[in-house]
Amino acid sequence: MYAQALDQKDKGPKVVEDPEKLARFEARCAADEKIEPKDWMPEAYRRTLVRQVSQHAHSEVIGMQPEGNWVTRAPSLKRKAVLISKIQDEAGHGLYLYSAAETLGVSREELTDALLSGKAKYSSIFNYPTLTWADMGTIGWLVDGAAIMNQIPLCRCSYGPYARAMIRICKEESFHQRQGYEIMLTLARGTPEQMAMAQDALNRWWWPCLMMFGPPDAISEHSSDSMRWKIKRFSNDDLRQKFIDATVPQGHFLGLTFPDPALKFNEETKHWEIGPIDWDEFKRVLAGDGVCNRQRMRVRRQTEADGAWVREAARAHAKKRAARQALQAAE
């Protein structure tokens, strides 16, 4: 995750809800009870979740592309196997999340169409290119690291199927982050050229990773509904700060410097403080004008089209077998 969707207030048509049911629902949320698919829920809660869970699913799926870029050029068989494994996990994450979204009454086809038509958004981080092998290390360490920071509170989300999917995902993300950090460690302990590669990757990824937590609290559209409904539990800035405090010492351990001259440790608050984030870049990339937005969409559409014959063949095969079984049963 990809909290960028957490800040969009529900803008769908206003539905007048039964006040009694609504009160009971709010009370259940306040009491930290879980909401399950067949339970009554207000339309705005349902829509907020569909948007957030499906955006999260799309992010997992699109997120396979930047890493897929390096499968054939991984530096060893071990690294290649690990990278493929990680990418396969991301496909799995997409599937768990699509399934969770479907329990809210949307079909897989609708969700896929929304992504392919460009109607649905995915995390801005995947619109940056992966230029060197060090990017595989940085993505695991920082992008998956930021995802974990965001996703751990979601394991306690009020909506049962989403919370359960998040628990599975968080377990797997830990491997992603550690394998990424290990790549960085290997580069940092290698030749000066390898060290330079690690530094260059950090320079390019640091700021986009900080943007993954979404706009600053001061300007973000208020998410009071999501907070009250126990969908969101921490503010964007709080999570971002947690991430900074966790990763800056890890970077220093590698001997890397962060591309932020203002970065300093505040002895009083015990927090690392950063310089200003370029929110214009964030908006630009989210709106479609990042380096790779067009390529990511083109590849995703092509993949869907290329796979059509496989799905068609599977349908034909299932029909043939069903017909044969019906015939045998009749004999």
Binding site: Q88, G92, L95, Y96, S99, E102, A314, H317, R321
Partner: peptide
Amino acid sequence: VGSLHAIDDTMALHMARDVYTRR
């Protein structure tokens, strides 16, 4: 543990193995 889409039982079993039992 979850759900998935498949065209028949055989495909559902294969998919379940890949999606839900990687570890």
